[in-house]
Each structure stands twice: as structure tokens, then as C-alpha cells.
Design a protein around this nucleic acid. Structure first.
Lengths: 129, 129
DNA sequence: CGATAATTGAGAATTGATTCTCAATTTTTT
DNA sequence: AAAAAATTGAGAATCAATTCTCAATTATCG
């Protein structure tokens, strides 16, 4: 997929710059600065094509609405802040999950999600304190 | 929460008997055998109360609709069959996730989801073969 | 340049999960 | 058993995420 219009370019660039999973709404807000008047429908349209082209990944985790982020090539997992609801990519993985599979089962992939409080929301280090 | 009516009893008993995460629709189908005419609204009503009473857990995993299962006291994770979409509880956990947390972050819980093909859907051992 | 095709924004429509409404039925209380 | 309270089923309503519709705008081609 080639990015032709101003809107498409803005959406992808902003997503790439943010460099973390964001909701379509968040993306609309951020990309609207570059592309005033941008509509949510366009954000969804472009995201859909980018996902199909495998340039963007849709991330669905329990407890938070779907997020999108630029496709990353390296194996990673996620951290969800229970306070601000932000998602952060985590690098690193303990691995060795296959041994937990029941007999006869095959594993093609796995996901690890850590829940907790991020630095910004922590009472000791947070921006609010 | 005490189970008073036939419907409530059936819903909980069937859920307990199935002993795996199921969708409200699946539960409706199974419990309808014991309680003919059972309605989906009642299934949701009872599930909601059971969840509030901590006797049932709502399980939300990416790619599949919400499932419900009787509360289990032991730490566990899930396996999602990419073919039949069934969810299976997995016991065991590698642990040691905290070391992947960025500085200043706190972890309160974690989730591990294994995706793959279950035994029944496997071409070698599946029931269809 | 002028026609045709593609894209966009706004809001309506859709989708899937869940909740609400309300009359009918069942249960509980007295 | 009569009255009051709770529960139920069916379908309407809601809710959040996403898609569709359509007229207006923009881009592309000959």
C-alpha cells in the first residue's frame, strides 16, 4: 500500500512517531494537528489498509479498547497500565511455553500481558507528584 | 449469592460440569436441555451475579468473544484453539516476568495466552480423522 | 483542460455483546 | 390462599467499535 494523500501520510507518520499502541481516537487527535479536519472514518479506513498490508498491527487486549501500532519485527509483549490504560511494548520473553501444552496440542504463537502501574502513574515517580 | 430458581441452578451446574470457558450462547444451549425455554437474558443476568459474587470468572481474550468459567483458585493461563476457537485452561506458568518491566513500573498481575491447534482439531489426532 | 476515478468528512447504519423493559409467571410472605 | 416481591423470556434498546453512504473535494488521465 502506497500512501498517496496528505491524510494517509499524516496518519502513518504520527503512528510511527508515537511509537506505541494507540487507539483510533488518540490517533485522530494527534494526526489532526497535521491534517486539520481529519475524520475518524478516514483514520479507520487507512488503519484497515495498513493492517492488511502488514505495516500496522491491531492489538486487542482484555480491558482496553483495540489499539494500533506500527508493525515491529522483533518479538515482544505488552504492559497495560491499570491506571491510565496506556499500553507499552515490552521486549523480552521468558519463552519455554510449549511444555505447558497438553498432549496432542500444537502451539503457533503466544502472548504475554503484564498488568500494573506505569511510571507516570506511580505515586513515587509520577508526573503528578 | 444463593441459587434459587431452576434456571439459576441449571446455569451454574452446567457451567461447572463443562469445566471450561464457554460463551453465554454455548451456555444457553447446554442449559436449555435442563431448562427448556431458557432465555439468553437470564443467562446474562445469572452470569453477572455470579461474577459479582466471585464464583464465576469472565475471560476476555483477543480474537474470541468473552467466555465465562467457574472460578478456579489456582493460578492458570489459557490456550486458544485457532481452529475451533475453544479456550482451554492451562496450569503452569514460567513466572519471572517482573524482570521485563521498565524502571519505575509495578506489576500487579500477568496473563499468558497460548494460541495453536487443540487435539480435537489436529489432523493427526482429531476426531474428524 | 475536462472527464473520470479516488478520497474524504460527517453522520447514519451496522455489528456483536450486553442490558433494559414489561407483561406473564413463579416464589415468598403472611 | 391472597398479596407482595422476585424472576423470567422476548424483543427492544444500548453501547462501543467499526463500516457504510453520499455529496463534496481532490487527484489522475487522456
Amino acid at each position: 500500500m502506497q500512501l498517496k494523500t496528505t491524510q494517509q501520510t499524516s496518519i502513518f507518520r504520527v503512528l510511527d512517531t508515537l511509537n506505541r499502541p494507540v487507539t483510533p481516537q488518540e490517533l485522530l487527535g494527534a494526526a489532526s494537528i497535521e491534517s486539520p479536519g481529519l475524520g475518524l472514518a478516514t483514520v479507520y479506513r487507512v488503519l484497515k489498509k495498513l493492517v492488511e498490508a502488514d505495516r500496522v498491527q491491531k492489538i486487542e487486549l482484555a480491558g482496553v479498547p483495540p489499539h494500533y501500532e506500527v508493525q515491529s519485527d522483533k518479538h515482544h509483549h505488552f504492559f497495560v497500565c491499570e491506571d491510565c490504560q496506556r499500553i507499552l511494548e515490552i521486549t523480552g520473553c521468558p519463552g519455554g511455553f510449549k511444555k505447558f501444552l497438553p498432549e496432542g496440542f500444537t502451539m503457533t504463537s503466544h502472548e504475554v500481558i503484564l498488568y500494573g502501574i506505569c511510571r507516570d502513574c506511580s505515586p513515587l515517580t509520577g508526573k503528578e507528584n
